[in-house]
Design a protein around this nucleic acid. Sequence first.
DNA 1: CGGGCGCTCGTATACGTATTCAACCGGCGT
DNA 2: ACGCCGGTTGAATACGTATACGAGCGCCCG
Lengths: 340, 340
Amino acid sequence: MQRRPTSFDIAALAGVSQPTVSRALRGSPTVSEATRARVIEAAASLNYTVDKNASNLRRQSSHTLALLFFEDPTPDDSLINPFFLSMLGSITRTCAAHGYDLLTSFQQLSDNWHTDYEDSRKADGIILLGYGDYLEFLPKLEALVRQGTHFVLWGSSRGGQLGPVVGSDNAQGGMDAARHLIACGRRRIAFLGTATLQSPEVLERWRGYAAALAQADLDVDPALRVDAITTEDAGYAAARELIARGQPFDAIFAASDLIAIGALRALAQAGLGVPDDVAVVGFDDLPAASLANPPLTTMAQDPRAAGRALVETLLAGLGGEPAESQVLPVRLVERRSSGR
Amino acid sequence: MQRRPTSFDIAALAGVSQPTVSRALRGSPTVSEATRARVIEAAASLNYTVDKNASNLRRQSSHTLALLFFEDPTPDDSLINPFFLSMLGSITRTCAAHGYDLLTSFQQLSDNWHTDYEDSRKADGIILLGYGDYLEFLPKLEALVRQGTHFVLWGSSRGGQLGPVVGSDNAQGGMDAARHLIACGRRRIAFLGTATLQSPEVLERWRGYAAALAQADLDVDPALRVDAITTEDAGYAAARELIARGQPFDAIFAASDLIAIGALRALAQAGLGVPDDVAVVGFDDLPAASLANPPLTTMAQDPRAAGRALVETLLAGLGGEPAESQVLPVRLVERRSSGR
DNA sequence: CGGGCGCTCGTATACGTATTCAACCGGCGT
DNA sequence: ACGCCGGTTGAATACGTATACGAGCGCCCG
């Protein structure tokens, strides 16, 4: 097994100098087409590829993005939200289309990831994905801004302007979901989710929901609002709590599909029929939503568009353009859980 | 914004030379504890981190692994198999535990990824995940072996010994699944999946299934075997085909949960009750399995153990140890779809 | 006919780190 | 007193590429 070839080997083989090899392969216009062809052929014949580390070192950039998943507070067995995973494909593909590699990592909010990536030149910028506690998250974001690290965050664009944010139109989604339930004839619509600053996205959804109720002259009853993080177990617990409160309700708007699916389980256990006794609407349109029993009506987010928007926003920032946040449309997907 | 600090800056601040900084930070035993402490403090005070590119260049290794997902033949909208995604967490965590970064990428079988990663020193080794056509895959594997590229493959360890393979005990799983159905009193058990060399894993599952039938003195009826790739749509189509054949059957063993879930849809549409008319068992134990209607009995693979085994096998190979394939146990998870 | 210009390419160098080798120092055995 | 040795450190260099700069060349214009 011989040593892997370098640009000097290619240069010798093509009868040119090493810098010419570099120029030819990087597409510099100052090299003649004839020379470029010779170089490319020589490179191909030796299976030469540019050494990424040397190239990165010289160019002072890694042509790599880092994708950081943040886990829910429960550190142990919790799986990452499937919606984020469904973005992975379009994120990797968009990166590849722009000639970037993608580093993937799961992180705890508490670790010091924020200094790790750009500082060590492992990545030129980072994509932050996670439903952690936003208030805990903020100091890290501030640190990123202070350091001048390039990043883009998935979340709510109304959460303050600490750098570019890409997210769904949560307020519109909440409003559409509630309107749909109202149009189905429901009047006592519960909300399951963490509608506080800890989860700006959910808060937006709640605001849209509240606005829709107000427009329909319905009360926003605090007794019909139960806190729940984005897991199935939390949804189950929240629905049980809701039932235990004894307040009448005829619909549930869950801040995420996982919560909704947990709620379906609790409702079934309590002998409440869906959609006859209680209509249910979720948020995300996970693959699991169509499998739920009954199939779950939900506000669909588009993971493909989301992934693309995240990468392109980040790359625009790297290119020096002012960072523009993006809001993506959501779409009601009607299934049986909301009746009709 | 000043230039980011280098090891020379740390050296000056700590009153030592640059090599000493390198030694101190990498934990070399030849540097005195007093000096090391001074260096570490100086580094911390300037927020210094080692430049990964320079370090990699010098050390001729990237301390990075690449994770390559291969898509099913349908290139366009097909999502990646959720089971693979569920390994992602444990893969990234195991990498992190060993001080490795992880590059993630989705690939087409046809691209020339096989020369791209180790050649360009982007990664020291690659993890291959995918249910593509194994026969198409083989030439690439041979190329990897020829180049001496380090890799590990998820799949069937019986598929020939082209490098280390990590996979579940598919034969045992197929046998356990079939035995379970037999124990439930079923006699005409159909098999849905691609039981050919194109999918060695599925082939193993089929062999286990066939062996179990033979042990119970039951026929292995070719009319009860329908081809299906690992998608829900394929499962749906396969079950419809099975029904259309008009052969009686009272159970289905599907080679994956996605197939099983598609089959459930087809059965429901045809008015066949599960588990009363037809018992169904899947394979994988995706999160969706417990949500299916009725909840799906399935052979559970352990994605956490799988991810860990993949990474550790690959790292062992990088460390020069002879590459040992690993077979992981599977476990029957009984739910309602198999009756009982 | 000389000077300038556009096109191509080679020379020299820098990127930041890790390692090889030599140097230094104090102490100890002879 | 001398030399050697273990424990530390510094000087020099190599990793492979990309770019600033200058050199050679043919050409046109004055």
